[in-house]
Design a protein around this nucleic acid. Structure first.
Lengths: 216, 216
DNA sequence: GTCTATACTATGATAGAC
DNA sequence: GTCTATCATAGTATAGAC
């Protein structure tokens, strides 16, 4: 259990009760391995060391438990990308290469947190069953990243750092390979396998991409 | 229900019984929307119009039912790619562009079949819970496609059609974006949404990729 | 906030008649 | 091959004592 992470409840208040945090993190672990429907309240509470009925003192239902997990994941995702209003300033201080590499560093910091990695897997598993999981995947992850990058590439073109391709195309060409590789990275971490090959692929991709689009 | 598709059982024999086929296709539909653990034998048999006990005349267990689904998906996946021994011949008759576009056509024919699209989703959902789903995803889909493309690009370089980048890098640069886009395509089809934008992205990607690697 | 006790439903699976 | 009947277990959730 991660000792110092803070979770918020559905009202936006920090969760302080130790057992409530234990329930959350146990559920995150089990859901990420077996899926929401594959895990029972009994199994969660057995692992936490409390009775089933005690769980309902903290969460109104199994579904609310998942809702709280997703709420907190949305917060964590929000921290991966720079706020759009800081984009122009950041690009003045960094060359394109640095900017994109910093993006990968930010992302790695996010996904190398075991809790985040687990919830990322829950989102993948539940995307067809649960509209909330789906909206996190589509809106908070895919669309938000692509539109952020579209703005970034538009600015890089404006600065003359990148050849004048349509920014949307550049965003797609840059990011879609990373989405695919992240999926594989996350699966390999789950299996405790070596991730150096796929990490190298990510670095190779950025280099390949930049070698074809940068003006220098 | 698709009337003319043939399924094989675990012994490799064709399944002829109508109800057994109905069970399979109902399970494929329900598993793809709710996940394996989210669907009960009762729900499947209710939809088929038989009693629970009758299902066990066709499948020894719920797990065997999923196993038969996956077995048949492996067969279907096998038909997407050209047999490796036909690669050299095909590349003599087609230019690189035609070859890659034919690949996308083959793949679209596969994934536009509703049954295949559903099982593709089941594989995604079950990849962390079920080793068989995982091996289909990793070995039959990802690794097989990448190593096929690696051979293809090596031949294209040999023919002078493509610039001499490492074939493995070319395969990754070409295919990973498509994996990401396919995931999105499959989700949009599931939601009955318009897929023209993501299809255009696939076409744009191939054009962008080729414009940077082809020698002509 | 946690417990015991309990309600009630849903689950995967089987036995045996037809 | 399908049915009725049944089983044992596991599922979510609640009431009320401490």
């Amino acid at each position: 259990m991660s000792e110092y992470r803070t979770y918020l409840d559905l009202n936006g208040n920090p969760i302080v009760n130790t057992n409530k945090i234990k329930i959350l993190e146990t559920a995150i672990d089990l859901f990420s391995r077996k899926g929401y429907s594959g895990v029972s309240i009994r199994e969660i509470t057995r692992e936490v060391g409390i009775k089933e009925s005690s769980l309902y003192n903290h969460f109104a239902s199994k579904e609310e438990l998942l809702g709280v997990i997703f709420l907190n994941f949305r917060r964590a995702i929000g921290e991966i990308l720079l706020p759009p209003e800081m984009l122009r300033g950041a690009l003045k201080q960094m060359i394109a290469e640095q900017f994109l590499q910093q993006g990968v560093i930010n992302f790695k910091a996010h996904i190398d947190d075991p809790i985040n990695a687990r919830i990322w897997r829950i989102v993948t598993i539940e995307q067809y069953r649960d509209p909330l999981a789906r909206s996190i995947l589509v809106e908070d992850i895919i669309q938000r990243t692509l539109s952020f990058l579209e703005s970034a590439f538009a600015l890089m073109i404006e600065q003359g750092a990148v050849k004048p391709h349509p920014p949307k195309l550049l965003a797609a060409e840059y990011q879609y390979p990373l989405f695919g590789m992240i999926t594989e990275y996350n699966l390999q971490k789950y299996l405790d396998q070596d991730t150096s090959a796929i990490e190298q692929s990510m670095a190779d991709h950025i280099e390949f991409f930049l070698s074809h689009v940068r003006t220098a």
